[in-house]
């Protein structure tokens, strides 16, 4: 009992009245021009300019006529805006023997891009799903081999693939180059999907099995709807990768089916006549338009998809 009295608290009013209520209160004010801010933003602005300047030069050059370009001020904005170079690049620039512009290459690229992207993602997502949830005998080994595949320098495989495609009659065709893209996209995409599905709680899969769903139903009705973020990541990787590809296009597609990148190279490097810088710039911008567009539209989604784990049930 004595103990209790000794430990009793100090009387309330006395202690509160001695507190000084002036002084800091609420959110701490932030200084806009602190040294830290100046350094950070200064660096960011410099870095942005470093990357944006070439783009700027390309855009202004592509909008100038040749006489203006010959004057040499590559940084000055066009005095007279002309879209002539863009039209020429798209419609009539000479790529080696033909003078039909980039449009042929554009359609070739589209015809390569769409099936390659769709097929590779469909197969890889099913692979990743099966590897995460339907462990079969040897699935670990299969996965290791796939992983290894992701790190093989693909130059090693170019010639063997040429032979395989030639033997199967797919060499120099759109189907052939599509197949190559699907094969080379497989390891990294499967890895991507497997890791995503590995983060899905396995109980979800078990619950679905108890509910009687099988391989495809679980994939289609449970897993697919919750994996939109990773599909977007995969689509972006494939679109930019395949669209920007030069090597496979030049090797496997055949002259008639050259993708846009190869035709761009042929326009820019054609040796006849004067170098039409404005046409070259316009052609380059046209070729880069799709990846640029994809980044602008989906950059945020991409980051979110990469960072996202599975949705919690």
């Amino acid at each position: 009992m004595k103990d209790v009295k000794k430990r009793s608290l100090p009387v309330n009013s006395a202690s509160t009245s001695s507190i000084d209520f002036t002084g800091p209160n609420g959110p701490k004010p932030k200084r806009v021009f602190s040294t830290r801010n100046i350094v950070v933003y200064g660096f960011l602005i410099l870095a942005a300019m470093y990357y944006l300047l070439p783009l700027y030069v390309m855009v202004v050059t592509s909008l100038k006529g040749m006489p203006e370009i010959r004057m040499g001020n590559i940084f000055s904005p066009p005095m007279e805006i002309t879209f002539e170079p863009w039209v020429k690049a798209w419609d009539s620039a000479c790529t080696g023997l033909y003078c039909e512009g980039l449009k042929v290459g554009f359609w070739n690229s589209v015809q390569i891009l769409i099936p390659s992207t769709v097929i590779s993602i469909v197969i890889a997502s099913v692979n990743g799903y099966a590897l995460s949830f339907w462990r079969f005998k040897g699935s670990e080994i299969f996965f290791t081999i796939l992983l290894f595949g992701a790190f093989i320098p693909y130059q090693v495989l170019i010639y063997p693939l040429v032979i395989i495609l030639r033997e199967t009659g797919l060499f120099s065709s759109l189907a052939g180059v599509t197949l190559v893209h699907v094969i080379f996209g497989m390891p990294i995409l499967t890895l991507l999907f497997r890791n995503y599905f590995a983060s899905v709680p396995v109980e979800l899969f078990k619950a679905a099995r108890v509910d009687g769903a099988g391989f495809w139903r679980i994939f289609g009705q449970i897993m697919l709807p919750m994996s939109l973020p990773i599909f977007i990541v995969a689509i972006i990787i494939q679109i930019t990768g395949i669209w920007n590809d030069f090597l496979f296009g030049v090797i496997y597609a055949g002259t008639k089916n050259f993708p846009m990148t190869v035709q761009l190279n042929n326009i820019v490097n054609s040796t006849q006549g004067v170098k039409e810088y404005n046409v070259n710039m316009a052609a380059t911008l046209l070729t880069a338009a799709l990846p640029l567009f994809v980044y602008f539209v989906s950059g945020k989604l991409f980051v979110r998809g990469i960072a996202a784990g599975a949705v919690k049930g």
């Binding site: 709680p201 109980e203 979800l204 078990k206 619950a207 108890v210 139903r217 949705v311 049930g313």
Partner: peptide
């Protein structure tokens, strides 16, 4: 058998009703 898990394991994109009916719709 019916099974209930520690982590609930509800299908995240389905409503409660669809969660309940999933097994029945499969059957």
């Amino acid at each position: 058998i019916g099974m209930v898990f520690q982590s609930y394991a509800l299908y995240p994109q389905m409503t409660v009703e669809k969660n309940l009916s999933f097994g029945l719709r499969v059957a």
